[in-house]
């Protein structure tokens, strides 16, 4: 093995250091993608791995692809993932408990077998010569790629354009919902509500009587029970309603207690409470009337 080949066969120490450090993080990110319970965390782990891969692309002389990796993958694709996660729900009942019998073990077995065999194959392959990209990149990496794309691979490139257009149309078609009937007017909605007879007055707004004025906290009905109608259906489906009714009732009790303390009376049963204020009001009225007469 001569010196030149030897030079092409090994990399610089800096690259080796970079590889070993970043490879650990890349694998950790990949494992995190698979194992994180929340999809958002998985997405973040994946983004990290992709960035590290972009660095590896750059180290391997693929400057253009390294940049594209960051722009397209971590930039566009991962953003798309996050958007969909927001639409669908960040923690949509995704427990890691396996429901299909034996699935996890089979997957593990196949995965380990696959990895071992693949690595054994790589180890077996006679990868003795490494050319390096110095010659190919001599006119610039982007120029070299462009020359190949627009000359040798021009048809494939054109077809890719068609593919992208088709995919864009497909995305629109799949997510588009055809409107099959006219949107009901307010008048029609009101009439329908009366006809149904279930909820005649308008829906309660979220946060009414609540400590938090937040969308995930249901309104409390007059008796203190929470009304799930007031929370968005997506949140309901995900089970992300925060019930604060107990707290609200406790708060109310505390206020009444304070009032009672201030008036120096013991807290009496509800019936007595209700009767006395009525009586005092009528007494006040009688007093006012008497005053009026006196003037």
């Amino acid at each position: 093995m001569n010196a030149l080949a030897q030079a092409g066969y090994t990399t610089s120490t800096g690259e080796a250091t970079q590889f070993w450090v970043l490879a650990i993080f890349a694998v950790a990110g990949a494992l995190g993608t698979v194992m994180m319970k929340k999809a958002v965390h998985s997405a973040l782990c994946l983004a990290g791995t992709m960035v590290i891969l972009a660095v590896f692309y750059l180290a391997n002389g693929a400057y253009f692809l390294g940049v594209v990796q960051i722009v397209v993958y971590t930039g566009a694709v991962m953003m798309l993932f996050l958007f969909v996660l927001m639409l669908v729900g960040i923690s949509a009942a995704d427990s890691l408990k396996e429901t299909i019998k034996g699935q996890r073990w089979l997957a593990m077995l196949c995965g380990i077998g696959f990895g071992v065999l693949l690595m054994a194959g790589i180890g077996n392959a006679s990868l003795s010569s490494f050319e390096g990209l110095e010659d190919a990149n001599s006119g610039g990496n982007v120029h070299g790629l462009a020359a190949l794309i627009f000359r040798d691979y021009v048809f494939a490139f054109e077809l890719t354009g068609a593919l992208l257009i088709t995919a864009a149309v497909a995305g629109m078609v799949l997510t588009h919902r055809e409107k099959t009937e006219a949107t009901p007017t307010q008048r029609e909605q009101a009439a329908q509500r009366v006809r149904d007879g279930v909820q005649v007055p308008p829906m309660p707004a979220p946060g009414v009587y609540a400590r938090h004025n937040a969308v995930d906290i249901p309104a409390l009905l007059p008796d203190g029970t929470p009304s799930e109608l007031t929370v968005n259906r997506t949140l309901r489906d995900r089970g992300q309603i925060r019930d604060v009714s107990a707290q609200a009732l406790a708060d109310l009790a505390a206020i009444e207690q304070r009032t009672a303390d201030y008036q120096g009376k013991a807290l009496e049963p509800d019936t007595g409470d209700d009767a006395e204020p009525n009586g005092s009001v009528s007494a006040n009225a009688g007093g006012k009337a008497g005053k009026g007469e006196g003037e």
Partner: peptide
């Protein structure tokens, strides 16, 4: 360092991804 290590890393990542497809149920994570 031998650049073949990149291939080993690629094989490992691929295997982890494949296992994830088999194990996870959330379609987005898959």
């Amino acid at each position: 360092m031998n650049p073949v290590n990149y291939l080993y890393l690629a094989a490992l990542l691929f295997t982890i991804g494949a296992a994830g497809v088999l194990i996870r149920r959330n379609a987005i994570v898959v």
